[in-house]
Structures are given as structure tokens and as C-alpha cells.
């Protein structure tokens, strides 16, 4: 699942040149564009609105925030959230430690392998999570099977396609080779080149990869339910039997909060980008 918001965020940054010039056949373009965007907006906002309303109404149809304020007190909610957050943290750390050096390495030393890498990192989109988890439960040693962190190890695989793609987009946007050569020729070691030159340049790519893995872990249901761990989504499904209002409220909150997090990130990135450009022009 996938793919790179970071690609689009990164592309967005340089997009203006890529846009077809709007003046040509403008009027015709405008109305269909408006229709498409409005319809899409309705399709995507309507369920969000409906969920908010559903969560704010009690069975008699009165407005109340009871469903929201009840969330922390529901049995099992806090432990499910805590488990999900721990899994997310482990997933994010492993993803970064594994993918960042590898992607940089391939970009620097084996650019010809990039095509193959694109294909390999797509595999997890294809192999269904349900097949993956039964294979894991079949083949993993007992030590791993008895720990919830087995899920994190697999989430790294699920997160790989878009983690790789956002890092890839980030690396393509900077002049990696020049940066590395400059740092090396000034006497920097590999470690300090990575940590003090490349990573700061990849901040946005890293952050969006991280937040998207957070989204993935907070939403992943298939593997967790088959591995019999009550993560947040599993809890939401189980709670539905008790009270649908709370399930809907939690779903709404987790979706909207993650979205805002990502939106805020892209806004911050935008501002930094502008600052850099201004500084650039001044010097």
C-alpha cells in the first residue's frame, strides 16, 4: 500500500514548471475541473461529516459529546492504543534504520539497480497481508511468535513501498553526489557525512515516511487480528458490538488527526523551502 505522498509533496515543490499553461482553452478546462473537484469533495467529505454527526448523536437523536468523552474510559482502549503506538514506534525506527542507508547506498553506488529496487519494493503491495501473516505464523520461530513485535517486523515490509518511494523522491531532489563528494573531500567521515549532510537534507522525506508508517500501523487490522493481538483497529471492530457510536468516533478521530499531522508537515516544509530560496537569492 503505498506510495509516496512524499513524491507528490516533493514534486509539488518543483511543480510550477510542470503544469500545463492554464491560459490555453481555459474556460473549457475550468468548468469540468470544477465539476470533478466538487463531486470528489462531496464523495470524500460526506462520510466524514456523517461520521462526525453519527458520533455526536445519541440514540434519541440529541446532540451530545458522550461518545467522544467516553473513549478513554472504554475497557481496553488505552491498552490497545498503547500497543499500537509501541508497534508504530518500533516500526518507524526499523524502517528508518533499514531503508535510509540502503536507499542512499543504492543511489550513490548502484544507480543502475534503482529500477530493480523499484520493482522489489513494490512486492509488498502485491503479496496480500493475509497471505504474509499466515506464512509468518507458519515459519517464524516461537520466540518471535510469542511477541507482539513480530507485527512490527512485518509492518516494516508493508511500509516499505512508500518509505522507499518517499526517500527516493527526496534523494532525487538533492544533488546527492556533489554533497557527498564535498563532505568527503573536506575530510568528513562516512558517518558524519550521512548524519550531518544527507539526513538534514532529507528531513521532509523522512518525516512524511515516518508519519505514513504511523498511519499504516494505526490502521492495520489484518495481521494484528490473525496474530490475535488487540491493536487499535482490532479494538474498534470488537467495540462495535458494544457501542457503534464510540467505534465511529475513534475511527473519525484517528483519520482526521493523522491527516492534520501530515498537512501541518507539508505546510512547514513549504515555509522552509521558501526561506531557503530567499536566503539563496540574497547570497
Amino acid at each position: 500500500m503505498v506510495v509516496a505522498v512524499a513524491t507528490t509533496i516533493a514534486a509539488e515543490a518543483k511543480a510550477p514548471s510542470g503544469r500545463p499553461s492554464g491560459r490555453l482553452s481555459l474556460s473549457r478546462l475550468r468548468w469540468w475541473r470544477g465539476v470533478v473537484l466538487v463531486l470528489t469533495g462531496i464523495f470524500f467529505l460526506l462520510p466524514l461529516y456523517a461520521a462526525l454527526r453519527f458520533a455526536l448523536e445519541n440514540n434519541l437523536g440529541h446532540l451530545t459529546s458522550a461518545a467522544f468523552s467516553a473513549i478513554p474510559h472504554m475497557t481496553g482502549f488505552l491498552s490497545a492504543l498503547y500497543l499500537s503506538l509501541r508497534l508504530a514506534a518500533v516500526t518507524m525506527v526499523i524502517t528508518l534504520v533499514l531503508m535510509v542507508p540502503t536507499t542512499i547506498y543504492v543511489h550513490l553506488k548502484y544507480p543502475r539497480l534503482l529500477v530493480a529496487f523499484d520493482a522489489i519494493t513494490l512486492l509488498p503491495i502485491g503479496i496480500p497481508p493475509i497471505v504474509l501473516i499466515i506464512g509468518v505464523l507458519q515459519s517464524a520461530p516461537f520466540v518471535l511468535k510469542s511477541s507482539p513485535y513480530l507485527l512490527s517486523l512485518e509492518y516494516v515490509i508493508l511500509a516499505m513501498p512508500f518509505a522507499y518511494r518517499s526517500l527516493d523522491a527526496g534523494l532525487r531532489a538533492i544533488d546527492l553526489k556533489t554533497l557527498v563528494e564535498a563532505s568527503r573531500s573536506l575530510g568528513g567521515r562516512w558517518i558524519s557525512t550521512m548524519w550531518r549532510v544527507i539526513v538534514p537534507n532529507l528531513r521532509t522525506a523522512l518525516a512524511s515516511a515516518t508519519i505514513l508508517s504511523l498511519a499504516l500501523v494505526l490502521g492495520e487490522f489484518t495481521m494484528a487480528s490473525l496474530d490475535l493481538y488487540t491493536t487499535l483497529p482490532v479494538w474498534v471492530v470488537n467495540t462495535d458490538a458494544v457501542t457503534a457510536h464510540v467505534s465511529v468516533a475513534v475511527s473519525f478521530l484517528s483519520l482526521v488527526l493523522t491527516w492534520f499531522l501530515l498537512l501541518a508537515l507539508s505546510a512547514i516544509d513549504r515555509r522552509q523551502f521558501r526561506k531557503v530560496r530567499v536566503v539563496d537569492e540574497e547570497t
Binding site: 500500500m1 503505498v2 512508500f162 505514513l212 498511519a215 483519520l255 501530515l262
Partner: peptide
């Protein structure tokens, strides 16, 4: 990005 990744239960 969020909707495509969040898949599943919440939706």
C-alpha cells in the same frame, strides 16, 4: 496518502 494507507477498518 492518509486514506490510501489508513485503509480498512476506519473507513
Amino acid at each position: 496518502g492518509v486514506f490510501a494507507n489508513f485503509g480498512g477498518v476506519q473507513l
